[in-house]
Write a protein that binds this DNA or RNA. Structure first.
Lengths: 237, 237, 237, 237
DNA sequence: GATGAATGAGTATTCATTCAT
DNA sequence: TATGAATGAATACTCATTCAT
């Protein structure tokens, strides 16, 4: 009897869970297809095969529903990214995997970027950082941390500046590629990785003495960035 | 009489021009302050001291008005950028100037970025590239072209990929800096310039392999040591 | 030409005025017939032959429209009361006229009493005294003041207590009479006037205690006998 | 065992009764605090610690629940009034007690008056007399009847007109006093009692012959009211 | 050109009530 | 009895746009 009751409870929960998923699926589809303003709660309800009022049992209002939809997207992206990155590789390789994954995903689901901007808007506050985005962003941070721990990257790497360049470049590129109807562009990724050269710790460098010309440029670049970072700090003080 | 009429016409034109400016000023203010959805044509008319109907003599509809407002912003940005960049400098210096200008401007008027996204949306099409933005983007392209012409940059530089990284990084960074209430961050700019190192043509390299190279190495080593000690200090704090 | 313009202006004003009246007429009818909750803005607009949105050009919202409708009622009532009362009569006579007028009017338009209660409700405050009601109430006060000035009424008369009894009785009675489908009941009015007896100043009393008194007594006695017999008759029926 | 079952049954009944009371308490609180429109069945259920659906096992719908709440109020008022009135006193004294009790109670729970109006509204019918109010009103009638039986009051007293004046005055006064934040005003009560003077049978009158001046006024007033009543009847025929 | 009154389509949200469990 | 998830009708209000002066 307790089993049956637990069974029933289970079924109930599953039903609610299924309904919740159904709503999110419908909402995602409609928001994606029609944009925030083009979307009506009625249409979402229709596609989820529920009554309009039921939507409000699961989500406080349209804005909240949008936030959940967007949050879900980034949560899924986080999962995918963790899968896509092989942490046994050298960090530069990992960053390439992450960049590739990110760029590909954004190109495919670029509408979500627009929705994300809308979901971030809060009445009063200028903008709002969705928690799920923060989690996603951590994937990048973790790779960098790993790199530093493994002595593959210099501690001097300015974390959040690099992070912004990384994600900013990819997002912007995704928009452009979308417009040009290109599925993917490796150059963007490669270009991005150049950014990390100055922080790359060359294990071989100690071994071989010969300072090649390339090495000079690299060293200069590294110095310049580090100097900029120090100056910045000083300016802020 | 023709003089008087031309006079009048002139005055008339000036009046219309002034009214147009008044409308754009009002529209910019309201859109910026209240966002696209918070803005009403009535409020814009009120602030421009004209009747609601008059707005429609100057602009087809709200969406078009927004497009003009946003277009104006980018046109102004173009003007400013052209002023900010000294084309007599080495291209890297020019890029640094442009990046600095762009980042500063975006941080100061970040609301415009949001409006830009909204202005790009067209019913049906996924997104739309505003002509004024294209013009702005050309400023970057011209610097690169100049660099290639002057043999400062390799022809191998992948133009639009670099461009996307350039603008994408700065835009994204601007958002972040805005959130952190930071006015400017040189690191972002410097970081970005690293990207162009691989395409930098070292005129001295091919020509001379003389003693200056040794000296360069020596100086570099000295600087690196100093930097390392500074970073160490910082890390200990 | 100035005439034509003034004419036009006049016409315009008249049109707006007419529209305003049309709205109020429609609103009054609908509120009266269907009650506050039964009334929809759409129905009012329909009956006023205007668009729904137009209602909001004339009245901020439903609650405000109701307040105006109710206010109008009391303003009209004030006018009527001033007409109904002949200030040359002894005050008791005036009060009788006012009471008669008030009772009759309330019986005929009793729905307005219910609307009045609803119009008085403000969000937050417990209740709210409509200005137009205050003006109406002044009609009573003025009669009393007049009476006191003319030495027909004692200054000892507790003004607002009497006023409340006056209006309270009539309003409550109006409800009852409405339920019983009675158009008017003089008894209520007469009953009410008894209240003022203690404050009536008998000019003759102090001056003369002469023969008229005897005569009065005689006449009273005669009337009392006749009345008693009539009442007896009535009782037997 | 039968005892135990009866015990259980008893407990069950008590439980139901307790739940019913809990619902009514919650409903009364919410209706009083938030008004009819501000009240939701969900909130009542929440405060009564039951499910929404359960409310409908005890009360057909919101309107009915309101009616019960309001009915309860008047039933309680009836109880209180019967306690407050000492039927051994002269009727005028009893009326004074009733008036005092009524006024005090209404001032304290004035929100109930508003709820009463709303409870009386029926779809279609203009208004509806709640049974519990009728019972309450009987308290007044009984005092009057007693007075007539005891020969303290004249049979000529027009019962329901007096009743309406009685309750109407007090209700209206209660509203006013509430607004002025006054707890009680004896003047109102005293004022009201004047109304009964004309019907007061002066036992002493037969004993003492001297028709005082006061007596004249009183006799006149009495006659006037009785005449009005007779004329009324005639008019209705 | 300028006006501003008029329009009316468009929708998020609430909540009394029901009913499967 | 009790539950509480589901329902869906019902509506005040906004505002971009138009058009008669």
């Amino acid at each position: 009897m307790s089993a049956s009751s637990s069974q029933t409870k289970n079924t109930q929960r599953e039903r609610l869970e299924a309904k919740e998923q159904s709503i999110l699926k419908a909402a995602t589809d409609v928001f994606t297809a029609l944009g925030v303003d083009g979307t009506t709660m009625a249409e979402i309800a229709r596609r989820a095969h529920i009554a309009e009022g039921t939507l409000y049992l699961y989500h406080k209002n349209k804005q909240d529903l949008l936030a959940v939809v967007v949050g879900n997207f980034w949560a899924e992206l986080t999962k995918g990214a963790l899968t896509a990155v092989d942490s046994s590789l050298p960090v530069i390789g990992q960053l390439k995997q992450l960049a590739t994954y990110h760029l590909t995903a954004l190109i495919q689901q670029f509408d979500m970027v627009g929705l994300t901007y809308r979901a971030r808007l809060r009445h009063g506050e200028p903008e709002y950082q969705l928690p799920k985005i923060r989690e996603y962003v951590r994937v990048f941070d973790q790779i960098i941390e790993r790199g530093i721990n493994r002595k593959e990257l210099s501690e001097a790497l300015p974390l959040w500046q690099c992070r912004d360049v990384f994600y900013g470049s990819l997002e912007y590129s995704a928009r452009t590629l979308r417009l040009r109807e290109i599925q993917f562009d490796l150059t963007v990724v490669e270009q991005l990785l150049v950014m990390f050269q100055p922080y790359k710790i060359n294990e071989a460098s100690a071994a071989k003495a010969g300072p090649s010309e390339t090495s000079t440029n690299t060293r200069l670049a590294r110095i310049e960035v580090q100097l900029a970072s120090l100056l910045q700090e000083k300016a802020q003080r």
